[in-house]
Amino acid sequence: MDMCSINPSHLGKKYRYAYACGAQRPCNFPNTLTKLDFLKKTANNWFEEGAVPSEPFFVARPGATEEDDGVVISMISENNGGGYALLLDGSTFKEIARAKFPYGLPYGLHGCWVPKK
Rank of each mutant, 00 (worst) to 15 (best):
P53H: 10
C112K: 15
N31Y: 03
K40M: 13
T32R: 15
S77R: 09
H110V: 12
K35D: 06
M3E: 06
L39G: 06
F38R: 05
L39R: 12
G90R: 00
K94P: 00
R98A: 02
E66R: 14
P56I: 00
Y107K: 14
W113P: 00
C112H: 09
G63T: 00
P30R: 10
P102I: 11
A97N: 12
Y84T: 02
G83M: 01
Q24W: 09
I96F: 00
F38L: 13
A97S: 14
C112G: 08
A51V: 05
E66M: 11
T42G: 03
E48L: 00
E78K: 15
E95P: 03
C21Y: 02
T65K: 15
L86P: 01
E55V: 00
V71D: 11
G83E: 03
D89C: 09
A18Y: 04
K100Q: 15
A20P: 03
T32N: 07
I6Q: 00
Q24A: 10
L105Y: 03
K40R: 15
F38P: 04
Q24E: 10
D37K: 10
R16D: 02
A20H: 05
G81M: 09
A43H: 03
C21N: 14
L86A: 06
A64G: 04
A85F: 08
L39M: 10
V72M: 04
K13C: 08
D68A: 04
K13H: 14
T92S: 15
A64R: 06
A97K: 14
L87S: 04
G90E: 06
P30T: 09
Y103D: 05
W46F: 05
G111P: 00
V52A: 15
C27E: 08
R98K: 15
K116R: 12
V52K: 03
N31L: 12
E67P: 07
G12N: 08
I96C: 01
N31H: 10
M1V: 12
G81L: 07
F29M: 14
P106N: 08
K94A: 01
A60V: 02
Y107V: 15
V114K: 12
L36D: 03
F29A: 11
F47R: 05
K41M: 13
